[in-house]
Amino acid sequence: MKGFFRFLYELIGTPQPPSETPVYREVIFPNVGLLTIGLSLAMVLIFYYLINRAMGVATFNKLRHWVIFLVINALLAFFIGLWQTSSQEVASHSYVYWMSTWNAILGLFWFFLFSVLLKRGSTNASTTPF
């Protein structure tokens, strides 16, 4: 699993500065990866199963609403990246922001993936986004 996240996050290049590489690979990438996947899953569950099913809200299912959640998810993913790197006290480098941005993009992807997988179970949003 660490290998998977390492592969995923090093798609944008190896961690900088290089001296922080062990911390990134062993701690930060798995943490951020799992947190982001968990966050995306939670957001998808909230959108599709809480709002659009359990709470019976039938008017929060348009494309723009889904996009709102998508964007919030990406923003939170960005902050997850910043939060984890600062709590691990890695050396300050612009790489932190690149990684967080990349994590936001991954957050977009996870949200989309979970949406597609789970939208069927939603009462009011089973055809959102398509």
Partner: peptide, 13 residues
């Protein structure tokens, strides 16, 4: 430190 290196110990993280 200069260059692309890091601690090679397994528990360096």
């Amino acid at each position: 430190n200069v260059g692309a290196w890091y601690y090679g110990e397994k528990d360096a993280s």
